[in-house]
Design a protein around this nucleic acid. Structure first.
Lengths: 197, 197
DNA sequence: CTTTTATTATGATTAAGGTCATAGCGAATA
DNA sequence: TATTCGCTATGACCTTAATCATAATAAAAG
């Protein structure tokens, strides 16, 4: 989100993380602003039985975990490297200072939060009032719109059924069964197990 | 959130709404920034079978529906007067201009969005990975913390079972049954049907 | 102080999704 | 070209919350 050079000027340091390595834990106090340089990061809750709920997946150029930098609350979920990745981070103080000194950046940051809130509203309405198929379709819809807003062709979905399950609050088997039904209905294509929406 | 005089200076106008009157509809283009002066407003999704999902309830001094003022999306839910109320509104342009001219206000607005995002993360994790009782308790917890962060005593919950159901994605009967169990467990008190948590 | 209305309460039944077990496929590794 | 490993697939069964029906309280209105 921020220009890389700007982050470096503000004391940004790079760090590598291996796949499945934890960046911070649920309940931790937030100390840094993080941005993904390479790879991807998931923010995830894990409940007592080990079931995961993925709050979001953040790719190159995206920041994560910033909301709690501005309020006095601990992280509501952990951040885990979804694959090998490189992150840049600056301190909380630098981040807040940066917002204050660059009103334009601040506004685009506010827009990002607004967008995320909007997407969360869409998703939570789904999760609470619709059945599995509808939920899955909305998730795919959000993903597609964020990746490629204009494309009308089918797009390869680079999420596993397990990840879709973890983002919709369903179980893998349910996701697999639903997506098969959705294929029969022509909502999506499945070729060699890969999904195109 | 904003000082009332400031809103008036920026062209703010007052409007009354009767209970159950709609302020804007899901899918509408966002034109105004709204703030509650008196009464309360709910943002709600209604699905095909008439089931409601309450995204949030906004009281005196709180604003609602602002995220879509900053992004190019229609309202993800409708706003309905929860009881007779008075709102003040300013245009989208004034709102954005206001943020630009008052960095301090902008920052506190960003903090509000951050807080809302944080609460939505807590709630969506609940809805997707926990059972009814846990969900209800988290909702009550969030409410209590936002109303009275320090109070350790039981607080009267001024939500009907129906409203709790609509906020957690459950059914009234389920909420009633769960809350009874929760009373037996000592998590909350019920006196003459009123809940204290 | 009765009538009406909204909310809470409770039981019986059903259906949808979860759970468990097991099999099959495809791609990377050796 | 076997072997392993991760992901997809599918059937059988079970649990839990939704559904439907109906009653009992509160609170509000007349």
């Amino acid at each position: 989100m921020f220009h890389r050079d700007l982050l470096i000027t503000w004391g940004g340091i790079f760090r590598k993380y291996q796949k499945d390595q934890t960046i911070f834990y649920e309940g931790d106090k937030a100390m840094f602003y993080y941005e993904v340089i390479e790879g991807s990061v998931k923010m995830v809750n894990i409940n007592e039985d080990g079931k995961e709920f993925i709050q979001g997946i953040f790719k190159c150029g995206e920041s994560f975990g910033e909301p709690v930098l501005l309020i006095d609350e601990p992280y509501p979920a952990c951040a885990v490297a979804n694959e090998d990745c490189v992150l840049i981070r600056i301190t909380r103080e630098s981040f807040v200072q940066l917002l204050k000194e660059y009103p334009d950046i601040h506004l685009s940051f506010t827009r990002i939060l607004a967008k995320r809130l909007y997407n969360k509203s869409l998703m939570s309405k789904e999760i609470s009032s619709y059945g599995p198929e509808h939920r899955i379709e909305t998730l795919l819809h959000i993903l597609k719109k964020n990746i490629n807003p204009l494309n009308v062709n089918k797009l390869k979905v680079d999420l596993s059924r397990q990840q879709i399950a973890d983002m919709t609050g369903l179980r893998v088997e349910t996701v697999i069964r639903c997506m098969k039904k959705m294929q029969e209905k022509g909502i999506l294509n499945i070729e060699k197990g890969k999904v195109y929406y």
